[in-house]
């Protein structure tokens, strides 16, 4: 997916969460509060919340296997030009670039369907761009929504 980010988008708000499945709810609640305060369109909020959850599910499940350092996960709400919303997810886990994950094959039956692999597919659908960078010992994954006004 293409990148449409300014190189140094200012950070409007940040949230640090634990590296647990239950802490994903802290992140989605944080987004929900921002969405309500800023009156984000319902469909945009749904897609961003879903995309952030899918990204965090990968991070808390896999990023810290075999890592000695204390896990760190931070979400930054980015100030973007125009009417898009950006969220950058930063973690100090093992390098993982979800933008390289291949699309799952469309299964023909429940028997053929593989369990997993749909998170990135959903992110690609709901976002305008999904950008990955490895900076030092950190993964930086930036999610940018489609415009609020289509």
């Amino acid at each position: 997916m293409s990148t449409s980010l300014p190189p140094q988008a200012p950070i409007r708000a940040s949230l640090t969460i634990d590296a647990t499945v239950d802490a994903i709810a802290d992140a989605t609640e944080w987004l929900g509060t921002l969405a309500e305060a800023e009156d984000w369109p319902v469909a945009l909020k749904f897609g961003l919340e879903l995309s952030v959850e899918e990204a965090l599910a990968n991070v808390v499940s896999y990023a810290f296997e075999g890592i000695d350092a204390a896990p760190m996960i931070r979400l930054d709400l980015l100030e973007l030009d125009g009417d898009r919303i950006g969220v950058r997810i930063v973690d100090n886990g093992i390098p993982f670039d979800p933008t390289n994950v291949a699309e799952p094959e469309v299964p023909e039956s429940v028997e053929d369907a593989k369990i997993g692999g749909h998170g990135v597919q959903l992110m690609r659908h709901f976002l305008e761009s999904l950008t990955y960078q490895r900076q030092g010992n950190e993964n930086h994954l930036t999610l940018v929504t489609k415009p609020k006004t289509p």
Partner: peptide, 16 residues
């Protein structure tokens, strides 16, 4: 009101 791939996965496990 909301479903992510984890919820889909649970349905698929039951469906299988």
């Amino acid at each position: 009101v909301y479903v992510s791939s984890s919820g889909l996965r649970a349905l698929l496990v039951a469906g299988k």
